[in-house]
Structures are given as C-alpha cells and as structure tokens.
Design a protein around this nucleic acid. Structure first.
Lengths: 247, 247
DNA sequence: CGACCTTTTGATATTTATCAAGTAGCGTGG
DNA sequence: CCACGCTACTTGATAAATATCAAAAGGTCG
C-alpha cells in the first residue's frame, strides 16, 4: 500500500511525518518534495555516522531501522533511540556540528541525503517547516526522558514491555503496523543495549512475556496478543509520544 | 560580580546563555532585553509546572536550581535534568502544549515568566534567536542521551563522578563556579533520583569519593579536589555539552 | 553443508536495593 | 541562646535484581 503510493516520491515517509507534527501548506509540502536528494542503501550493522564526525548532509530514513548509540568507557554500548521510516535521525548535525553519538543501521536501510545548506535554506524560506522540525526535536527529547525513567526506575520486565508498546505505536503512526503486528528485526542484544540490561536477562524476560501469552514472535514480526495487558505490564501511557499535534 | 552587573537587567543570565550558543546581534539582544517579564520567587520543593499542565507562559531561571522529573508507575521519581540560571527549563511547552513531565524547585528560585505568544513573536521576528533556542533544545537532548548512558551502562561510582563533572562545567559556564568550587544544594535523594540509585547507595559512593580526597563538601558548596581524578573516575568527556558554539 | 550469529539454559557472582536505626545539622520558636 | 522537630545523612545487615560465565541448541545464509 504505502510502497505503491510512494513510487517515485521517495520522501513520502517524511511528509507523512511532518503532517503528523502539524498542518503543512501546499507550498511547504512542495518545497520538501522538490529537495535534491541522494538516495543510498546500507547493509545491516553499518555505521552511517560516527561519534565526532562533522556531517555535511542530513539524512532521512526511508525504509528499514537504525539507532543512535554511544560507547562508554568500558566499551559497553548504550542505544539512545530507534528510528522508523520518516525520521531524520541526525537532524541535530544541522545545528550542532560535531556528532556526540553514532548512527547505526539495524537492517538493510534506504535513506535520502540532503546537503545541510539546502536544508538550512528550506527552513529559512519556510519557517513553518522549521517549527515542525523543532517540534520533532522536542519530541525526541521527550522519548529520551521516558527512556531515562525506564532505565533508571523500572524493572526489567516493565522496561521491555514499555519499549514494545512504544515501538508498536510508532510503527502504527507511520502505517507500518498491521493490526497488532509490527516488523521486528531487533536482536536481544539490541534490546539489552537500549534498556540497560544484559542479553541473558532480556532473553528471560522475553520468554516470560511469550509464556504469559502477551506477545508472539514469528518470522521477524512481533504480534501483541494482549495489548491492555502489555500496556499494564509496561506502565505505558502514550502521552510522551505527543502523537496528536494539538497537544 | 555578576549580581552587580545584572542590576535592573534580570535577563542577563539568559543573554549570557544565548551568546554562549552562538553570535547574537545587537538588535536581537535588545529584543530579548525588552521582553515584558513577570518576576516570581518560589521556595524550595515547589512544583512550578506539573505533568499534563498546559502552560501559557515560558519561564527563564534567574537564580537557584530546579529540575525536570517524572513519576513512574510504582511512585518512584526520575529526575531528567538539573537547571542553572539562564536555562529555560520548560521551553518545550512553547511548541508542545501538554507537559510530559514536571518542573520542581530545589532551592529558593527566582524566575521570569514570558507569555507564549510574546515568545512566539520573538522567534518569528528574530529567526536567529529561534535557531539558537532550537540549538539549545538539541543540547538538552544531548545531555539526556549522556544521562541514559550513565544510568544504563555505568556503575554507581562512575555515575556520581560523571554528574559532578557535568554540574561543575555547567556552573562554570554561567560564571557561578569559583576556582574549583560550585554551589551544591542537591540532597542525596535528588542525586539518587537523577542517577537511578537508592539514597543509601549514593551516600556510600559520596563517602568513598570524599575519603579518596577527590571532592569535599562544606556549607552547601562542593569543591573538586582532584579534577583529572574525578574526570577519570567519571568517564567524563565534555564534548556532549557542546559548550563551544563552533562545534 | 558449514560457519556464524542469535537464542536459550543453568550455575554462580556482583551490584544495588531495602529495611531498620541511629546521628548530625539546621531552622524556628520560646 | 537553647530546646525541639524536622530533614538529611550515615551505618550495618539482609534481600533482591541483574550480571557474568559457560555451553548448548536453533536459525540463516552463502
């Protein structure tokens, strides 16, 4: 469905996202669609941008999943965020020139590159788009705060359930969930690095959630079998996602 | 020093901060200084803004310290950030109308309130200021990510040392540190809620840092006795603070 | 068919939380 | 100026959650 509509309009996921952030005029939408793009593909496990890099282009995720992460002193990894199509995971490099984290692909990924000067002109000539992207940055921060709460104050089982609820809503928001099912390419190592847990412990929690009939995993897709149950286990309230522009 | 210069110019801390974010023209600075303000004072432990509120004004912290926080399902608190004078701790409510967290004073606090419509006009008429505030939002996010790393992947001792290094640089950046000393009004409960630790454990770590001669605390001020040592213990690299506008 | 990742399981070790008191500091009112 | 009461700090003992180590079992892809 989405794929068919998007033919020849690679930025459709971005536009969809912008519209979800707030009303976009015809002129603004046209300006976005006429951005000069470089399309690229990456295999899974590729570092697109490294900490300390100074990118000269911004990227828009078109398909697949990637994450932002940092490596701490003893070599451990903390994943800071996961990204779904439509996201601009390194938008910050437009205004903060040195990267304080890396960007890694988790699946095969398609993305569009746009030079920073072009992006800068876009937001200068279309202030409304600037506000929407600023709002996106703020929502980004809201997710970080919620993740901090999970990692700092929730038990392992709650953390895992909470993250699954979040991912489901974010996939659904960009039209990539079907019914109660979403793409699920994360390894348990990724989950552990995102949630501040060891792989072994993630494994035990996932097993228990499956045993309890709350979720099911098959062929790279995750199905939520009991959504109220999962939300209850995960102490989940979606307000922090700010999915409705009016709030 | 600062206090004397600031007489009758309450927004001096904000201007100082904006200039630290990047060059500010005379006209832009004048626009900031002529903002219509409501000055207010709060005692310690006061909730200035609550989760789910819809503020109609933005606030600028002039003196004292406050924090953003959330309460999770079982009643535990996670502090997301600490704020020093010059910060606009609820800037996000300008673009994201419903609060996803609360704002709490930790000391007696002076702050300036500015109506949202006035702020909106300011950034519309002075796009440069908008970019600087957007950049501030991005730095905010960078701190959240670093805190996530601490909470998720660093041991208690490293976390505490890391936070102390951060606070020192941020105080120094707004001219509130003297030599190796900074104001220190945080209770160990606050530290625990910020770092995802129990009070008892924070207490033990603080004791060990004092015993090791790395820090000293006296009359609400903290002195770093061995800065390289504290940075080493805390796995601290200041790049994530983005203190130099050029990067 | 293998090589390589990922998942799974069991056993054990560590870190950190919790519980329970006791102590010290500090502001307030007599 | 001192006593009182509150809060924050400190300490010890024990418990719980989670990490680590080691190894086997399953999948997947060339």
């Amino acid at each position: 469905m989405a794929a068919a509509d998007d033919n020849g309009r690679p930025l459709a996921p971005l536009l969809r996202k912008l519209i979800a952030l707030g009303p976009v005029s015809q002129a603004d939408a046209a300006a976005v669609e006429s951005l000069p793009l470089t399309l690229r593909e990456y295999p899974p496990g590729q570092e697109i941008v490294r900490e300390r890099d100074r990118p000269t282009q911004g990227c828009i995720l078109l398909s697949g999943m990637c994450c932002r992460f940092k490596i701490v002193g003893d070599g451990a990894r903390q994943i800071n965020s996961f990204h779904v199509p439509g996201d601009m995971p390194d938008l910050q490099s437009l205004l903060l020139h040195q990267m304080d984290h890396g960007l890694l692909t988790l699946t095969r990924v398609r993305l569009a590159l746009v030079p920073h000067p072009t992006l800068m002109q876009l937001v200068e000539n279309h202030p409304r788009l600037g506000f929407l992207l600023w709002r996106d940055t703020l929502i980004d921060g809201s997710l970080f705060r919620e993740w901090m709460c999970s990692i700092g104050r929730r038990t392992a089982r709650v953390r895992v359930a909470h993250l699954l609820c979040e991912l489901f809503l974010r996939y659904r928001n960009v039209g990539l969930a079907e019914d109660m099912t979403m793409p699920f390419h994360l390894t348990q190592t990724h989950l552990g690095d995102a949630l501040g847990l060891s792989v072994v412990h993630v494994n035990r929690v996932m097993k228990s959630l499956r045993r309890d009939g709350v979720i099911g995993i098959a062929s790279r897709r995750l199905t939520i079998l009991d959504r109220p149950g999962l939300a209850r286990i995960g102490d989940f309230d979606d307000a922090y996602l700010h999915l409705t522009p009016g709030s």
